[in-house]
Amino acid sequence: MTYFAGIDVGSLSTEAVIIDEDATMLGYSIQETGADPVRAATEALREALSLVGVSREQLHHVVATGYGRINIPFADRKITEISCHAMGAHHLFPDTGTVIDIGGQDSKVIRINAEGRVLDFTMNDKCAAGTGRFLEVMAGTFGVPVQELGELSLKAQKEIPISSVCTVFAESEVISLIAQNRPREQIIRGLHRAVVSRVWGMAQSVGIEGAVTMSGGVAKNRGIVALFEENLGHSIHIHSEPQIIGALGAALLARGEIHQK
């Protein structure tokens, strides 16, 4: 039996996924990237291998993706997370036509074809609006854990619109709303709307086609997902571990390379 690994070294977390030659996912590991991406990648791979009981030598091919991909010495090839998210999402949900990925530092909208190949994509500019970072800053402002934001936003019956797009401006807008004693849940829902509108605007430039799959850590936020679904008018595919889609795609591309040869 031969095995393949994909490693996605992101700004916040690093994921490793192991698959076998039938493209079945055997196991994965998630680590904090921290200050040393190479160590995080090594650790994630080690843990994933030990979880599935496969040795390093049994790995045929390793593909690295994500921001830290360039520095991973044991990767056989480096592929951008755009192509990897596309392949991962296609594998999990074959009817996927559009992938929305909202990560810690950036967000992307990727249009893919029936083989999981990228047709077109768009990413946010330097600004943090429309990313996980934006929600993190706002969670800090409210003093609530970022994981709880989504639930809080779902509790609101109404929402207070946030007009600023800039994270810094939005923060001061939120502070003045808090000072006016406006309901916390309604402000939070407004913030979720701001993120969704931003990404939705990006999505218009490539167009949304087919089923939509969301990847990245923010896909775990039910408030965000609900607002996207409201915009779309139908439901979105979400995997139980949306962070690992990039690493899974990398592993699939590793397998694909060998199979082509």
Partner: peptide, 9 residues
């Protein structure tokens, strides 16, 4: 376009 405007500032 008041999206780039900060009332507080």
């Amino acid at each position: 376009d008041f999206r780039t405007y900060s009332e507080e500032q």
